[in-house]
C-alpha cells in the first residue's frame, strides 16, 4: 500500500509540473500587464514601465522562454514571484489559501454527506412523492449556473435581512460565521444536487441485489439491510465521482467567492486576471492542480479503504 501511494505521489508531482507550466505559458501569453500603465496619467516613461515590468518578470518584451526560466528558477526556490504591486505572491497565497479551503472543505464534506444521504433515500423511495421532489429539486439546482444560484440566494438573504431588520446574512467584510453561511450554502446546494443524483442511481443498482436479500433472510430489518449492505456497497463509486467533481466545484467556488466578497483564492484569481497579474494566476493554477491531484489520491485511498476487492488486486 505504501509503495502504491509513493508511486502515485511521484506521478502526481510530474503531472502538476506539466499542468502548471502550461498554465503559466498560457497566462503569460494571454495577459497584458503593460495595459495597466496605459490609463495612467501622467503616463510613466516607456523606460520606467519596462524597468518595472522586468523587475516583476512581467515584461512582454522579454522572450517568453526567458520569463518562464526565471519563473521556474524562482519556483524551485519556493519563490512564486511578485504581484503587480510588488508584494510576494507567496504571502498573499498563504493568506488566502485557508480562507478558500475552509469553504471548499465544508462544502465538500457537507455536500457529500447530505448528497449521499439524500440520494440513498431517494432511491429507496423510488417513484414516491419524496423521490420525485428530491429529483425535481436537484435538477433545478443542476440546471441553474452556480453564480445565478448565488445571486438568487443573495437576493433572498437581502429580503430576510430587510424583513427582520437585522444583518443575519452578510457578504461584505470578513466577519466569520455569518459571512460564511451564504457561500457555504450555495456550494453545498450545488454539491448535494450532483452527488444525490449519482448516489441515487448507484443505490438503485444494488437495491434488489442478491446480497441485500441474503441480509434480510438473516433477519435484518429492511432499513438495516439497506444501510449496512446496499448503501455500504453503493457508496464506493462515489469516491471516483468525488475526484472528478472537484474541478467543477473549484470553478463554482471562484464565482461564489467573487459574488459574496469572500477573500479567497477564487476572488484573487478574478482580480488578478483583470490586472494581468501573471504570477498570481500561475500561483492559483498551482493551487488548483495540487488540489485536484490530492483529491484524486484521496479518492483512491478512500476507495481502497472501502472496497476489499480493490485492495487485494494491488
Amino acid at each position: 500500500m505504501a509503495r502504491f501511494v509513493l508511486r502515485r505521489a511521484v506521478g502526481s508531482v510530474v503531472l502538476v509540473v506539466v499542468a502548471v507550466s502550461l498554465a503559466y505559458l498560457l497566462a503569460a501569453t494571454a495577459l497584458h500587464p503593460r495595459a495597466n500603465f496605459e490609463g495612467r496619467s501622467p503616463r510613466p516613461p516607456e523606460r520606467v514601465i519596462d524597468a518595472r515590468l522586468t523587475e516583476l518578470n512581467l515584461n512582454d518584451r522579454t522572450p517568453l522562454p526567458d520569463r518562464y526560466a526565471v519563473w521556474v528558477t524562482g519556483l524551485l526556490r519556493g519563490d512564486l514571484g511578485r504581484d503587480f504591486d510588488g508584494d510576494p505572491v507567496a504571502g498573499e497565497l498563504g493568506r488566502r489559501i485557508w480562507v478558500s479551503l475552509r469553504l471548499l472543505l465544508i462544502g465538500t464534506v457537507l455536500g457529500g454527506v447530505l448528497g449521499v444521504a439524500l440520494g440513498a433515500c431517494s432511491a429507496v423511495r423510488q417513484y414516491r412523492l419524496s423521490d420525485r421532489l428530491i429529483t425535481l429539486a436537484s435538477f433545478v439546482v443542476l440546471a441553474v449556473p452556480v453564480f445565478v444560484l448565488a445571486v438568487l440566494l443573495q437576493m433572498g438573504a437581502q429580503k430576510v435581512n430587510d424583513a427582520t431588520g437585522t444583518r443575519i446574512f452578510q457578504w461584505a467584510g470578513q466577519d466569520g460565521l455569518s459571512h460564511l453561511v451564504l457561500p457555504t450554502v450555495t456550494i453545498v446546494l450545488a454539491q448535494v444536487a450532483v452527488y444525490s443524483r449519482y448516489q441515487r442511481s448507484m443505490m438503485l443498482d444494488v437495491l434488489s441485489a442478491d446480497f441485500v436479500r441474503t441480509a434480510r433472510a438473516k433477519g435484518l430489518r429492511r432499513g438495516t439491510a439497506l444501510r449496512r449492505h446496499a448503501l455500504r456497497t453503493a457508496v464506493i463509486p462515489m469516491t471516483t465521482y468525488f475526484a472528478y467533481n472537484l474541478g467543477l466545484l473549484l470553478l463554482g467556488a471562484v464565482f461564489i467567492e467573487k459574488i459574496f466578497g469572500w477573500h479567497g483564492m477564487g476572488e484573487w484569481l478574478i482580480d488578478s486576471i483583470g490586472r494581468g497579474d501573471v504570477n498570481a494566476v500561475a500561483a492559483f493554477d498551482l493551487f488548483a492542480a495540487g488540489l485536484v491531484l490530492v483529491a484524486g489520491l484521496l479518492a483512491d485511498l478512500a476507495q481502497a479503504a472501502l472496497d476489499p476487492r480493490v485492495r487485494v488486486s494491488r
Partner: peptide
C-alpha cells in the same frame, strides 16, 4: 433460506 448464486449472494465488502 439458501440462495442459488453464490457469486452475488454475499456482500462483497464485508
Amino acid at each position: 433460506m439458501i440462495f442459488q448464486d453464490p457469486q452475488s449472494a454475499l456482500t462483497p465488502v464485508h
